[in-house]
Design a binder for these strands. Structure first.
Lengths: 147, 147
DNA sequence: TATACTATGGTCAGTAAAGGTCAAAGGGGA
DNA sequence: TCCCCTTTGACCTTTACTGACCATAGTATA
């Protein structure tokens, strides 16, 4: 497991303990993991995005902080919200992030199946220019049926 | 026995030892067999396909990997038979018919979702000439994940 | 009050480390 | 010989991590 994954786990653990919201110090966290501060930003922007179901609030300057907040909606709202968030096109990474966020609402098996339907592997017969558009359509149709 | 067969055997042996799922490093494997990395892709795409009953998961970048998963479970034969029946392309009507046969094995909701993923509606962004090929790929990937 | 210092966090481009794709060349069997 | 399966290598994409430089907020001081 890479550094980024360990940092992400640490944050996740904090969220678990504190009911969905933690406040971090970028500098201290970086020091704890022996990396440069910007590594923390990397972890946040790749693993704690709105698509993953998180909100980030920060403040600079003296006494600055980074707050990570996990968003929780009802299963139905979550699915509807996701359908609306998909838009006309979605890349592979964003689709999996969205789907992971729906895991509880959809169940393990359904999530895996929809992820498979949206995977680049399944869509390798579609040329890249149109691939994200097709993926978006498949994802939306699946989610609507799962509702 | 050719190089590809030896590599395939090596992977098979790993699957045997680890209960149906192995994680490989493309670079290391290639080095071990003294071939170019893309040779590994060749082996995977010719011998560990959905038709053979395998799922491939990969991650690029630092700490990347290739995971080979052998599908197992009880309704396996029925589903594998279907996967093989799909072939390189399948029209909308045939896909629905195939899915209806699997209704008991998959359950109502899953069947509906996979049908949605394979629908012309979901694939309206794919031009008819290629549509059946894309549908076949989606269907196979979904069925393997549904096992 | 205005200015300067200090303490934070943010951005972005660059580097390295994987894996992916595809077309062309090679080789063995019918 | 011809065809199909193998093998190779050049080029591409994605992910991880780092460091230099930037922006902002609080605090001390002239």
């Amino acid at each position: 497991m890479g550094l980024s994954d360990m940092i992400a786990q640490f944050i996740l653990a904090g969220l678990e303990q504190s009911d969905g919201a933690v406040e971090l110090s970028r500098g201290s966290l970086a020091e704890r993991f022996g990396c440069v501060p910007s590594q923390i930003n990397y972890v946040l922007t790749t693993r704690f995005t709105p698509e993953h179901g998180y909100i980030i609030e920060t403040k600079r300057g003296g006494g600055g902080y980074i707050r990570v907040i996990r968003v929780r909606l009802s299963p139905r709202d979550l699915i509807m919200h996701t359908v609306n968030a998909v838009g006309d096109g979605i890349d592979s990474a964003s689709a999996s992030a969205l789907l992971q966020n729906l895991r509880d609402a959809l169940g393990e098996r359904l999530t895996a199946v929809i992820a498979a339907a949206c995977s680049d592997r399944a869509l390798r017969g579609v040329e890249p220019p149109e691939r994200d558009g097709v993926r978006a359509e498949i994802l939306k149709q699946c989610l609507l049926r799962a509702l």
